[in-house]
């Protein structure tokens, strides 16, 4: 594929998953509202928010870094997504995953967070660094079980390449990491709760006490950029998790593919890719549902509590998973 082709494919892939991210956020908000006994917002509310925010005039700023914060953030989200192969065996959704392996993705996640934290810092609002302080502290803690589970997979499959890890999980649910190394997956899921910043780990953006944590000073177009990132970044994380732990989605394999293959003689490429995307959507939706489920069920940890939490039981589970992988 030519460079231009690659860029085009990446743009398409980003477009699909951004929209998925919007819809996911909208639907989850609605589910949450229903659990709490409200009617809730329409599923398309995120689109309205984005449009509204971008339509508004951005009147004031606090300096260059303040401007660059959301840019970093969005670039971080896009980049993270682009370094992950979204659908296996589909050049259209392979993104730029040839640039690096899982280590690259894990560290590129920080790119946006760091830039955002810097931008927020320049706003001069004390709540921003407080939120950043909490976020960083919590992040460093939930990294531990996540790292352990990723390493468990890397050892199990003797590869750090996401593509290779997904490939190794093809051929039925029995090959999924979820089954082959349940401990690692449990650790990773707990880490995911921290990553998603829902309850009980929501103190970072602290919806009650601190207006919205780091992005306090951001408004209109800049805030829109942050919201856009939230959807793509969410999608990227979900895709990564599904790839690593739940068999990913393939354009040439899988239950849906098998079903359509049993109906059609030859599954056309476009259908295979579509089925892959659908598989991915279903899996990520279910995965995300876990966080929502936990989020509406539990109260909130203080930062120091969540640090101690992550570094104790989930870390031990992760270690156990690591040893399970080495067996």
């Amino acid at each position: 594929m030519t460079i231009l082709g690659q860029i085009g494919a990446a743009a398409f892939s980003v477009f699909i998953f951004i929209n998925y991210g919007f819809l996911l956020a909208g639907s989850m908000a609605r589910i949450r509202a229903r659990v709490q006994g409200r009617i809730g917002q329409p599923v398309y509310q995120p689109y309205i928010d984005i449009l509204k925010n971008n339509a508004r005039r951005t009147a004031v700023h606090h300096g260059v870094m303040f401007f660059l914060g959301p840019v970093f953030r969005l670039a971080g989200g896009l980049g993270t997504f682009l370094f992950i192969p979204a659908i296996l065996n589909s050049p259209l959704f392979a993104n730029f995953s040839f640039s690096g392996d899982i280590l690259l993705v894990m560290y590129f996640i920080f790119f946006g967070q760091l830039g955002m934290a810097l931008g927020a810092g320049q706003s001069g609002h004390p709540y921003s660094p407080i939120g950043v302080s909490r976020g960083l502290a919590q992040m460093s803690a939930f990294e531990m079980p996540f790292i352990l589970s990723v390493l468990a997979l890397a050892i199990k499959h003797n590869s750090l390449s996401i593509t290779a890890i997904v490939q190794a999980q093809q051929g039925g649910i029995a090959n999924w990491s979820m089954i082959t190394n349940p401990l690692a997956v449990i650790a990773a899921i707990i880490a995911f709760l921290g990553m998603s910043m829902h309850n009980p780990f929501s103190v970072v953006i602290a919806p009650q006490e601190i207006p919205i944590g780091p992005p306090t000073e951001y408004h209109s177009g800049l805030l829109g950029m942050l919201q856009t990132n939230r959807s793509i970044f969410n999608a990227a994380k979900l895709v990564l998790y599904v790839n690593l732990f739940f068999g990913g989605a393939s354009a040439t394999e899988g239950v849906l593919y098998a079903l359509s293959a049993s109906v059609l003689h030859a599954v056309p490429v476009w259908l295979g890719v579509t089925l892959g995307v659908v598989t991915m959507v279903i899996k990520t939706f279910l995965l995300y549902f876990i966080t929502v489920f936990v989020g509406v069920s539990f109260p909130r940890f203080r930062t120091d509590q969540s640090i101690r939490f992550f570094l104790f039981v989930p870390t031990l589970i992760g270690l156990a998973g690591l040893f399970l992988a080495r067996l």
Binding site: I7, L74, A75, L82, S99, L104, S161
Partner: peptide
């Protein structure tokens, strides 16, 4: 077990940074 292409990482990052 893995691979890393520093130049492409730079290109992609620059690309996604430039758009916003």
């Amino acid at each position: 077990i893995g691979y890393w292409n520093g130049s492409w990482v730079m290109y992609v990052t620059m690309g996604v940074f430039m758009i916003p």
